[in-house]
Design a protein around this nucleic acid. Structure first.
Lengths: 338, 338
DNA sequence: TTGAAAGCGTTACCAG
DNA sequence: CTGGTAACGCTTTCAA
């Protein structure tokens, strides 16, 4: 069956008014509860609305009222489970407030991100939430002068933007300390992309704890990853090729850990009996790897929720305070004391 | 540092016109390339635009032009990797067309879905893509009378809606045939939610192939799952508690397979040596499970892409033909011949 | 080539 | 309580 192009109809408030024999103003009043309207007129209008299947045009409403009750969200990857959780948090916080979330994605590219934000502004979002990304502080500050903006996952120094930050370095420290406490001394690390702030912070945390414990930092013990499974896979191979001995392996994120775990599996190296693994993020799937992955949990859902609350607050004219959320280690079964 | 509520400015086309000493019409013409404008005026306008940092108000534009260059997408779960892929497909197809995707989610609840679609309509989407969901055919047909609609992942019988379907039953057949061909005779199944069409279709396919091969269908060999990991976990326990012998296990989806695989791991049952597993969906992670999961791939990205292309086509006034995409088996390492 | 004016669908401010 | 009217920011005739 072919789809037949259909004539798609749309009724307006005017038509409703005419059908009900009242003025447009009256219809608007009934719709918004702005003023008292006599019962018979209300009935007539309601009947007309039902008959014409009338729905207010939110575009016109937004134009008139100056705000469209929409919060724009810039994510980096619609398919990333990490951002997806933040989105859910935003969605949850927005539910019931009358504000609808509008999601666009920037794919970790400053120019695309800027373009998307411009798009959101052009659509007259009431506020914007930026989930991480590569925009410079200056760019963000410039946007923030135009409308309320909340940035998450990075420490932004923009006078007008609010932000919800996560202490990545502290997270990495947690992981290494956990390993140290369990007797591991040779701890390898598969890092994230060198140009990614979070990746750098995690590497820094790893190194700091090691040195504080009197263990020399060995560059040969860190392999370059890319935050993807492929990086974990290659990372393990690199480490092995370098003949490094390690009883534990810290991965820059969970996806890296999945790849690393697979590489170890292929090599016949038992986890956690021969090497322990710790990931970073706590993606949903990490509870179901074999063995379930011990990892550093990022409260992403919470970040999304609080970001949304902050915009809402700014929208209400209240000052919103930047916050920093804590990461925590979730203990599962991929680490064994040695 | 506290966020100081900021006065957020917005300049209009009128102001640009005034600053440049021309009429609003002229500015509009320059912006849209609608007509020839003398060079000096153009320069003046461009300067004014830059100085005022003017951005056109898409709300007003949409109101005037009757279309907002936006495609609404109803997904079921922003955090589901399955839908995320479809979203990426839509995004890809829309890139560069001038249409922007607006995503909302319905959480598998008919009433919420309907509400969200109404929201999209109220915002005057040019077209809507519905990714699966629980809306009745009648509801969809009603929406489709109001604007171009494409539904994916289900066979919709609505006169005005176009749809991109997937043959779930055939997918399940593929999997069972594959197992049969490798010598498996005792094939257990962890089913999806009984009220879910796809789940039913897969169960039907499983049963059909078994019977065609002369193997009696045994209800005791199918456990009730829920499309989530927890269902896979419980499913294996149920099967084991029933003292069922099976050399292969088909799971209604990959998430179920992850749970099942973990249950087997806990029980010390080797995969694929003692039992083979096949999943359904081919989520990203399935390449990284240990062992990597053999599964039935659903071309979700492609579904998203084609859905977007279909709306675009309908928007252009062309008829869009419903399509049915094929599932395919992707062979990895979780099945072993016996 | 340019400007004036009408109008997209709403809301809000007036009178009455 | 109700209707007329202006305005939101933009595009698009229609004249000039």
């Amino acid at each position: 069956m072919l789809h037949v192009p259909t004539a798609h109809s749309t009724s307006t408030l005017h038509e409703v008014a005419r059908a009900a024999g009242v003025s447009p103003s009256t219809v608007s009043r009934i719709l918004n509860g702005t003023a008292k309207v006599s019962d018979d007129k209300r009935k007539a209008v309601e009947a007309a609305i039902a008959k014409l299947n009338y729905k207010p045009n939110l575009l016109a409403q937004g134009l008139k009222k100056g705000r469209g009750m929409t919060i724009g969200i810039l994510t980096q990857d619609l398919a990333s489970p990490f951002f997806a959780n933040a989105l859910r948090g935003v969605e949850a916080a927005l539910a019931g407030t009358g504000y609808a979330p509008l999601v666009v994605s920037g794919h970790w590219q400053a120019d695309e991100e800027a373009e998307r934000v411009e798009l959101l502004i052009a659509r007259r979002m009431d506020g914007i939430i930026i989930l991480s990304g590569c925009l410079s502080d200056a760019q963000i500050d410039e946007f923030a002068q135009r409308l309320p903006i909340v940035v998450t996952g990075r420490p932004v120094v923009a006078a007008h933007a609010c932000n919800i930050a996560l202490d990545q370095e502290a997270g990495a420290r947690l992981a290494v300390e956990y390993l140290l406490a369990r007797g591991h001394r040779r701890i390898a690390f598969i890092a994230g992309p060198p140009d990614h702030d979070d990746a750098q912070a995690r590497l820094k945390g790893y190194r700091a704890v090691l040195e504080a414990a009197g263990i020399a930092y060995e560059p040969a013990m860190v392999a370059q990853g890319n935050f993807l499974e492929s990086g974990g896979l290659d990372g393990v191979e690199t480490l092995l090729a370098r003949q490094q001995q390690f009883s534990a392996l810290l991965c820059a994120n969970d996806q890296t850990a999945y790849g690393a775990r697979l590489a170890l599996y292929r090599r016949g190296i038992a986890v956690p009996d021969e090497v322990s693994i710790i990931g970073f993020d706590d993606l949903h799937y990490s509870s179901y790897t074999t063995p379930p992955l011990t990892t550093v949990r990022q409260p992403v859902y919470e970040v999304g929720r609080q970001a949304a609350e902050s915009v809402l607050q700014m929208l209400a004219g209240l000052p919103a305070e930047p916050r920093q959320l804590l990461l925590e280690l979730v203990e599962r079964e991929s680490v064994k004391p040695r």
